[in-house]
Computed example of a mutant assay.
Amino acid sequence: MQLDGKNAVVYGAVGSMGSAVSRAFAAAGARVFLAGRTAATLDALADEIRAAGGRAETAVVDATVKESVDAHAAAVVERAGSLDVSFNAVAYDALQDVPLVDMSVEDFVAPVVAATTTHFLTATAAARHMVAQGSGAIVMLSSSAAREWRHRMGGFSVACASVETLVRTLAGEVGRHGVRVVGLRPNFTPETAGASDDDLPMLVTDTLLGRLPRLSEVAGTAVHLASDAAGATTGVVVDLSCGAIV
């Protein structure tokens, strides 16, 4: 299995994207450490993963608080011996469908602050341990909004672009220590809203494939990027927009 023997932390593990990646990591052989704010939902996902034959452990972690993130990363290393994969799927609110000229500065910067804070804290916490052990993969989650202009995304576009910049800059700092940093840039995944491609014609029209990405495709790509098979890949953002971004 692609991630056999690896210890993977997933932040925001119970959301649509986080849970899909958590299941995929576990199915690929990783021991998955599920991190989030609500113990009950984390435990339910862990039970599901274990029932399917995977390994999962849970912890309540606030990914916006340095002490919480650092303590959890250290606990994973102490318990499992290493921290091999870090994936951040923490959600954050963003005001959209409002013209920038009509938006308050508070609404504009809110998603930028939220995204950069949680990705910075989780990625650097993982990087410190990975540099010490000489290996590891940090996977960050962006969105096609980072490169779009057609839709009113407010500060969400800038937030995603900031995450992609963090991918490049952190990769440049830790690469010579055996640590890889990569990003995922999916388009909107219909399953996250209980919708289908037919419900989102404006987004589908913008794609070359005539459809939107599936959660399974995003999760499968995350598994590959976290695995040794992607050992030559770092400092890049993999586009999963079905051709909305070329």
Rank of each mutant, 00 (worst) to 15 (best):
Q2C: 04
L3Y: 00
D4S: 14
D4A: 11
D4P: 02
G5D: 00
G5H: 06
G5A: 04
A8N: 00
V9H: 00
G12N: 05
G12L: 11
G12S: 06
A13Y: 03
A13F: 03
V14F: 09
M17H: 12
M17G: 12
A24I: 02
V32W: 01
F33C: 05
L34G: 09
L34Q: 03
A39K: 07
T41S: 14
T41L: 02
L42T: 00
R50N: 13
R50Y: 07
A51H: 01
A52D: 04
G54P: 03
E57D: 14
T58D: 02
V60Q: 09
V61I: 05
V61K: 03
A63E: 05
T64L: 13
T64K: 12
T64S: 14
T64C: 06
T64E: 04
K66R: 14
E67L: 09
S68F: 00
V69M: 04
H72W: 11
E78D: 15
R79E: 11
R79G: 07
S82M: 02
S82P: 01
S82F: 04
L83T: 02
D84I: 00
F87D: 00
F87N: 01
A89S: 14
V90P: 12
D93V: 10
L95D: 05
D97R: 15
L100V: 09
M103I: 08
V105Q: 08
V105N: 07
E106D: 15
D107L: 10
F108V: 13
V112T: 08
A115E: 12
T116W: 06
T116A: 15
T117S: 13
T117K: 14
H119W: 12
T122D: 01
T122L: 01
A123L: 02
A123H: 01
A126Y: 00
H129Q: 07
M130Y: 02
M130V: 04
V131E: 14
G134E: 03
G136A: 06
G136H: 03
A137M: 08
V139C: 05
S144L: 14
A146T: 00
A146L: 11
E148L: 12
E148S: 14
R150F: 15
R150A: 15
G155A: 08
S157F: 06
S157M: 03
V158S: 11
A159C: 08
C160F: 05
A161H: 11
S162V: 04
V163G: 01
E164C: 09
E164K: 08
T165I: 05
R168V: 10
R168Y: 09
R168M: 10
L170P: 13
A171T: 10
A171M: 11
G172T: 14
E173D: 14
V174L: 11
G175W: 13
G178K: 07
V179K: 10
V182C: 11
P186Q: 13
P186G: 13
P190A: 15
P190D: 15
E191W: 07
T192Q: 10
A193G: 15
S196H: 09
L200S: 11
G210V: 15
R211T: 12
R214S: 09
L215P: 03
E217D: 10
V218A: 02
G220K: 14
L225M: 04
A226S: 05
D228L: 08
D228H: 03
A229P: 08
A230T: 00
T233M: 13
V237I: 10
D239W: 12
G243Q: 11
I245W: 12
